[in-house]
Amino acid sequence: MDKENRAWQWASHTIMIALSLLCVLPFILLFMASITDEKAIVSEGYSFFPTQFSFQAYKYLWMQADQILRAYGITVIVTVIGTACSLFITSLLAYPLSRKDMPGGQAIAFIVFFTMLFNGGLVPTYMVYTQLLDVKNTLFALIVPWLLMNGFNVLLMRTFFKTTIPVAVLESASIDGAGEFKTYFRIVMPLSLPILATVGMFQGLAYWNDWNNGLVFVTKPHLFSLQNMLNRIMSDIQFLSANSNGSVSESLSQMPSETFRMAIAVIGVVPILAAYPFFQKYFVKGMTIGAVKG
């Protein structure tokens, strides 16, 4: 038995180390590119061991520190508020759907699922949010449209509730006279930490990495999130380079260079890397609690 276990441990570690390397190396390359001299990139390409270093890109970023910090702030606010609200309404919808005894559950599940297949597309959604609710150039625009809740997470939670929360527990709570809300908050939630952590993480990442909402609904620079800034710079460069004629080359020359783009990418990822271990601590803890109690 022990021997078998050790073999499993070995195999698992080996495979995971290989996979981890595969995932980490490109990031090292990205970071190296951001501190490589601009000329060296052009002449030698990207390299793990660049011949010439330069912190020019970061210096340039530092000059615009106030703008970047502001964008960071927006991103953090949006991520925190958005994730919290999202978890709340997603779980509130998913839990009743997991209850087999509730009439109409199947139909509502279908309604949820249907949203994943059909969407009105950008234009009509835009119209709803700008004309029905005037969200343009507000923080709501970065939180509510598209991101707040998605059918996938609802169904994911429903499946989790269905498979891991014993009906007997719910029934005994009901016999003890606990109302539905009480059952939900006191019993279901504590049992569901793994899935809450998982969905919370998905949502958090979605908010952190989102640039689409900012692109569609925000034109005021003081509301730009970090991804928005990065993305706008990228798309502007693409636009200008693709339309190169006498007139735009002047504009192009003032756009940040390759290394600068890499530097922005790095500062966009670093906070997640820094925050992820803490986040994951709760995530793993949540999972363990769920496992022990479940």
């Binding site: 601009e38 002449s43 380079s241 007139s247 080359s249 260079s257 390759e258």
Partner: peptide, 22 residues
């Protein structure tokens, strides 16, 4: 290629490019 002409020139690549003049 994903580098702008200016980046290429600065990097010491190339000698000439066609252009719309003014």
């Amino acid at each position: 290629n994903k580098l702008s002409t200016f980046e290429l020139l600065r990097g010491g690549k190339g000698f000439a490019y066609f252009a719309a003049l003014k």
